[in-house]
């Protein structure tokens, strides 16, 4: 089973993503509420894929992405963005994000994105 780490400061989004993946063949190994926690959780849990919110307290998703990629260049990170964040999405792509998903998104789109990133 593939392991996923959810990073979002909003509990609502974390639960949304968790719910959407309920019947999928994915194990959610952790949830982080900011970039700082995300980086340390990534190192500890070594998930196969990460969903990463961009705007978060303590450390933004972009910075966390950079640190995660520096630690593990193979890291597969999906940015969770929303309209108005084009500039940051671009930075994320340059910094090595696999892809991004735009809020609001549907369950199917999230499934597709994750399976594609995992190369299933």
């Amino acid at each position: 089973m593939k392991k996923l780490l959810i990073v979002d400061d909003a509990a609502f989004m974390r639960v949304s993503i968790r719910n959407m993946l309920q019947n999928q063949d994915i194990e959610i190994v952790g949830e982080a509420a900011n970039g700082l926690i995300a980086v340390s959780m990534y190192k500890e849990l070594r998930p196969d894929v990460v969903t990463m919110d961009i705007t978060m307290p303590e450390m933004s998703g972009i910075e966390a992405l950079k640190l995660i990629k520096a630690f593990d260049p193979q890291a597969k990170v999906i940015m969770v963005s929303s309209m108005g964040q084009e500039g940051m999405v671009k930075q994320a792509i340059i910094s090595g994000a696999k892809t991004f998903i735009v809020k609001p998104f549907k369950e199917e789109l999230l499934h597709k994105t994750i399976s594609k990133v995992l190369g299933v």
Binding site: D9, F12, M13, S16, T55, P57, S82, K103, P104, F105
Partner: peptide, 18 residues
């Protein structure tokens, strides 16, 4: 910063809930 982030979060969550 904080208010920006709060509005950003609410924007995202409420969009998800339609």
């Amino acid at each position: 910063n904080e208010i920006f982030r709060i509005m950003h979060t609410i924007k995202g969550s409420s969009a998800m809930m339609l």
